[in-house]
Amino acid sequence: MAANENVLIMDHVSYKYSPGTAYEVTALDDVSLTIKEGEFIGIIGHTGSGKSTLVQHLNGLMKATEGHVYFNGQDIYDKDYNMKNLRTQVGMVFQYPEHQLFETTVFEDVKFGPKNQGLSEEDQIKRAYEALELVKLPEEFFLASPFELSGGQKRRAAIAGVIAMKPSVLILDEPTAGLDPKGRDDVLSLISEMHEKRGDTVILVSHSMEDVANYVDRIIVMDTGKPVYDGTPSQVFANYKELEQMGLAAPAVTYVMNDLKDAGLDVATTATTVFEARDEILRMLNK
């Protein structure tokens, strides 16, 4: 496959809960978007904005009530489409993935995915080993019970379980929820490193603007079931006032830059990370 080809396409996808009843709720409202191979995307939105519903359409866990989803050019709703294959190709790490660890040892747990793919025992072991190495779980924990690990380690083990299936698209739904700042930084830099090593497509669902701005190339903002902004972090956070009305916020440094500009200083307001802001302020001061 050539680089930058469209991996996933959503074409006018809508999803309604309880359609045709008094409880009908539109969770996705005519969403069209394309995701290219190798992209690192952040999807943000407040609770109930449809971001989790959106990603669950990408690996066929939820079926659109209207519209189509294409993976590598094929309509995943075709009758003879291999859904099982799609789910190994588009790997999903759910919220609190450590709740899904169930085997007696970490190693067995990570092997479970490749085993279901029908790989030989030898390949399963190889895959599990590689995946655990990729998530940097120390070897002494490989044969430990998953329940003996710390919160951050459990999460790594759970991510390894998905990586072991070698998906070409990796979706993570709030991978840092409930972790402390160190655990959060560890998991995010791990995801970013793995993305660089594997060159896979990564979709990160989050409500932490700072996290997203620091790592991703493209941000999609969801509100009331629709993508309202789609672009680079600086493009998206330029709309910080509108984001606020949606119950979101831009990174704190974006506000600083805008405040400086309002105070009459000649600064660009596109900074979304501490280092970008520092460089821009230094440039302004030295002028």
Binding site: P181, D185, E210, A252, V256, V274, F275, R278, L282
Partner: peptide, 15 residues
């Protein structure tokens, strides 16, 4: 000690 520092404080520190 890998504690988180507010972004504004961090920016001031870097400057």
């Amino acid at each position: 000690h890998s504690l988180d520092v507010p972004q504004v404080t961090l920016l001031a520190h870097e400057l």
